[in-house]
Design a protein around this nucleic acid. Sequence first.
DNA 1: CGAGATTCATGTGAAGTATACCTTTAGGCTTAA
DNA 2: AAGCCTAAAGGTATACTTCACATGAATCTCGTA
Length: 400
Amino acid sequence: MVSDINKIFDSFSNDTLFINKFILQTSYSPGKIPHRDNQIEQVASILAPALRGEKPSNLFVYGQTGTGKTLSIQFVKNEILKRAKENNLPLRIEYLNCKMRKISDTEYRIFAELIKKLGGNVPATGLPTDQVYNKFIEIIEKEKRPIILILDEIDQAVKKISDGFLYNLTRLNSELSQTQISIIGISNDLKFLDSLDPRVRSSLGEEEIVFPPYNAIQLQDILKERAEQAFKKNVLDNGVIAKCAAYAAREHGDARRALDLLRVSGELAERQGCKKVTIEHLDLANEKIDKDKITDVVSSAPKQFQLTLFSIINLTEKTKEKIYTGEVYNVYNEMCSKAKTEVLTQRRFSDIIGELDMMGLINAPVISKGRHGRTREIKLSVANNIIEKIKVILKESLGL
DNA sequence: CGAGATTCATGTGAAGTATACCTTTAGGCTTAA
DNA sequence: AAGCCTAAAGGTATACTTCACATGAATCTCGTA
C-alpha cells in the first residue's frame, strides 16, 4: 500500500516538465526586465534624490495590466534599497496593492493596511477614521526617514472611495515635520489622472511615466527567457511560445497573461502525462484561465451577489430577449424564498447590479425606454461554457 | 406636422437603522507582601 | 495595595433600508399650417 503511494509520488516528481515552476508565477521577479530599460531609467532618475536624503517627486505611472509596471517599480525599489543600505542611508519604501478586495473598499482599510505595513497595528473596524489617520502620521513621524509609498492599482481604490483620500495623502507632507513622504501611484486607466480633483492631479502627477503594451515580438523575448529557466530542455513544442505571445498580444500585450498561459499549459501537459507541451495544451490553458478567474470571483462573492447573479442567469436562459432590472428583481424574490434568504430592497438590489457590472460579470448600462421608463439592460458577459460551471457553484453555495 | 408637456419604471442621493466590533473606564476579585 | 479581569458605556464602519427626488426618451397634446 505504502509502496504504491510512494510510486505515485516518485513518478510524479520524475515526470515533471518543469525545472522551476516558480519562475513562471506572476509573483516572481526576474533579474532583468526586457524592453523596459527606458522606463526603469526614468523611474530610477526620479527616485534617485531619495539617496541624497531629498524628497523625490511624486510619480504617476500608467499602463495596461501586464505591461511590467509593478515589476519595474519593484525592481527599482529593490535596487534603491540595496544602495541605501550600502551607504547607510535611512530610507523606507512600502508597496501596497489597493485592488485586493478586502483592502480597497474604504479609505479606512487602506490606511489600516498601510499602518500594518509600517509596523503599527489597527483593528479591522471600530476606530474613528481621523484617529486612524493620526496614527498613520504618528507612525511616519516616528520613522524619521524619507518614505516612499507605492500605491498599485490606485484607480480601483479611488473608484470605490473618492479622491478625497488621495487629497489627504498628498497633503500629508504639510502635517509632517520630521519626515518627507513621496507617493508613487500606479494605474491601469489612462484617463484616471484627468478625472481627479485638479489639486490632487497637480501634486500627484509631478512626474508621469507611461508603460506601453508589449508587442508580440517583445512578449516572445520575455517568454523565451523565462521558459528557458522554468522548463526542462525540449519540452516546449515548436511554436508554443509564438502562439502564446500572439494570444497575449491580442489582449493588449499582457505579459502576465502570457506567463500564466505558459505555466498552465505546462501544468496541463504534465497532468496528462505528456512529455511535451503542445499547442492544444495552450488552447486548453487559455480556456481554463478564463474559467478559473471567473469562478474564483463568483465563489468568493457575498451571498446576495450570488443570488442576484443566479437570478440573472436563470432569467437569461428562460427568455432570450433583453432583460431588465424589474424582471430580475422578481426572479430574485422567488430565489430568495427558495434559498430561504432575506430579500433585499430594490434600492440595494440596484446597487448590487451595478457592482456586478463593475466586476465585469455582467453588462448593465442604464437605458431609457421612453414612455416605458428607465432601467438597466442586463446582459451576462461571461462565455457560455463557463456559465454552466458557475451555475453549479452557485447552486452549491446557495443550497438549491 | 412639430414643439412642448407627460409619463413610466427605475436610477440615485441622503439620511436613518441594525449589527459587529473597538477602546476606555470603573468596579470587583485575586494575589503578594 | 497593586495587578488583573470583566462588564458596561461610548464610539465607529458597514451593509442595508426608507424616503424622496431625478432622469430621459417614447408618447401624447394641442396649436398651427
